[in-house]
């Protein structure tokens, strides 16, 4: 009897949460339908925001994964002085507020090395590359922790074997560790990509919120709400929800496949 009560209570809490989320989405749809008669949607601006978000999120998450592979390899496979400090430092972006990270970047680009990059390599602050930089700094900690965890779950004996069979460290990484971590890395890419799509704080601090220039989906939602354009904000939020749900369902399927194939 007690067990049944406990299960019933757990399911009830779950149901309340699901209903709450569905109610939130439903309210968005209702609000959109109510305000659709008031004014139409500026599709050009909306499409720009979606395109810019997808492009910058893809570039930043690809960069984050590329950086996280060697970093995670070193952290997962080697012991070295100050390792725990380095590990903690790389986790900082996960804990720190995105606005704080954006402000740190902004301050950095006002120092001599930052100005050198701006003057001689690439203009970043308040430009599109700033979005990529902001997203990258926010997601790199997540990427490293996910890829490192994937590497740690691969038995190092596989690489040892590869080396005794003639593979160098790099060949053992590319021919054994990376293929064995493929699904984990893909899941890390999708999760960091999803996080980059929703990034707002660091982006708005470093890249600003210029319509049709540095206007990503979260920035567009912010601008819409700031100008009391609820209809547009609702449309943008719904697009964000559609993107997020698609990615999350794909990640779950990937994990299920991964678990099944390793069973």
């Amino acid at each position: 009897m007690r067990n049944k009560l406990f299960i019933a209570a757990s399911f009830s809490v779950l149901a309340v949460l699901v209903i709450f989320f569905l109610a939130l989405i439903l309210s968005l749809i209702t609000q959109m339908q109510a305000s659709v008669a008031v004014r139409g949607v500026d599709w050009a601006e909306l499409i720009f925001a979606v395109k810019l978000t997808l492009l910058t999120a893809t570039v930043s998450s690809l960069l984050a994964i590329l950086f996280s592979i060697p970093v995670s390899y070193v952290l997962a496979r080697y012991r070295f002085p100050l390792k725990s400090f380095v590990d903690a430092l790389l986790y900082l972006p996960i804990v720190l507020s995105p606005i704080g990270l954006g402000a740190m970047l902004l301050i950095f680009f006002n120092t001599a090395p930052g100005r050198f990059i701006e003057d001689h390599i690439i203009r970043i602050v308040f430009e599109v590359p700033a979005i990529v930089a902001a997203q990258f700094i926010v997601i790199i900690g997540l990427a490293v922790s996910l890829v490192k965890s994937t590497f740690e779950h691969v038995n190092p004996e596989y690489e040892n074997i590869a080396r005794t069979l003639g593979a160098t460290r790099l060949q053992a990484l590319t021919r054994v560790l990376l293929p064995l971590s493929r699904n984990g890395i893909l899941a890390a890419f999708l999760l960091t990509w999803a996080r980059a799509v929703g990034e707002f704080g660091a982006t708005v601090t470093l890249a600003g919120a210029t319509p049709m220039k540095t206007e990503t989906l979260p920035v567009a939602i912010f601008l819409s709400l700031a100008s009391a354009d609820v209809h547009r904000a609702c449309a943008l939020i719904l697009i964000s929800i559609a993107i997020s749900l698609t990615v999350l369902i794909f990640i779950r399927k990937l994990y299920a496949f991964n678990t099944k194939s390793h069973a």
Partner: peptide, 13 residues
């Protein structure tokens, strides 16, 4: 030097 480890560690991929 050839090596066969305890858990055999055949490459699953």
């Amino acid at each position: 030097i050839g090596y066969v480890p305890q858990d055999l560690a055949l490459f699953p991929h």
